[in-house]
Design a binder for these strands. Structure first.
Lengths: 115, 115
DNA sequence: CCTTTGTGCAACTAAGTAGTTGCAGATGAT
DNA sequence: ATCATCTGCAACTACTTAGTTGCACAAAGG
């Protein structure tokens, strides 16, 4: 939906990194991202079927991921299908490479390649 | 579950990524890492002087960062000096690039360059 | 010795988060 | 129209985390 292509690296505001890293700090959420990437977009109900968690719990995780900009949803009929928009990951890599670049110049070289 | 990649990327246990991303999710902690990298290792007391936070609060953040493997401390006399060990950042970048690589082949190319 | 400075630990509060249950509103099928 | 199914929201519990204060212990220096 939002096609706002955020400039990846240093121009990101801190709060975005908070929610982004925060979203990635949970193993369930990382698994959700991986699964949505490998098996394609699905609904929260389908995702909940293969976990011990409730649909509502999964939905909350999806909303956290979406707030971090990692997901978006599309409604078809009564189903709501969530899919990954991995662009914000570039911001995370941007900060990491920027920071690590202060330490290691090789990584700094890599950062320039990434942008 | 995840594809067992060769290097320290996917071979890292999930809990490590939890604490790692969790440590990076806080702006104060990211600032601490940046500051320790740019201005070199220091003590918690010194770090606390330039923030509105207490020394104890700073110390807790340092311990969180150290638990994530991003810091280590060295004792000289009665001072304890904290410094950055940015290697774990590679694990974070590893997961991100592995994951984003499932979606974007360009990033996957970059991943191979990084290892 | 005594004083000063830096560190470490414990208790406590306030706020956020993961998870649940329960129910109400849409939508599709019969 | 009716029934089954999927979604969305609210309330509630349990746990974790960020921050504080207060105090006790270790090391330098007079």
């Amino acid at each position: 939906m939002t096609r706002t292509s955020t400039r990846a690296t240093s121009t990101t505001d801190p709060g975005a990194l908070d929610t982004l890293f925060g979203a990635l700090a949970d193993p369930t959420r990382r698994q959700l991202v991986e699964r949505l990437l490998t098996k394609g977009p699905t609904t929260a109900t389908v995702l909940a079927e293969t976990t011990p968690l409730t649909r509502q719990a999964i939905l909350k995780h999806l909303q956290v991921l979406e707030a971090a900009g990692l997901l978006d949803h599309e409604r078809t009929g009564r189903e709501v299908r969530y899919g990954v928009t991995p662009q914000p990951l570039a911001a995370a890599v941007g900060w990491i490479l920027d920071t690590a670049g202060l330490w290691d110049k090789r990584i700094d070289r890599l950062r320039r390649l990434a942008t």
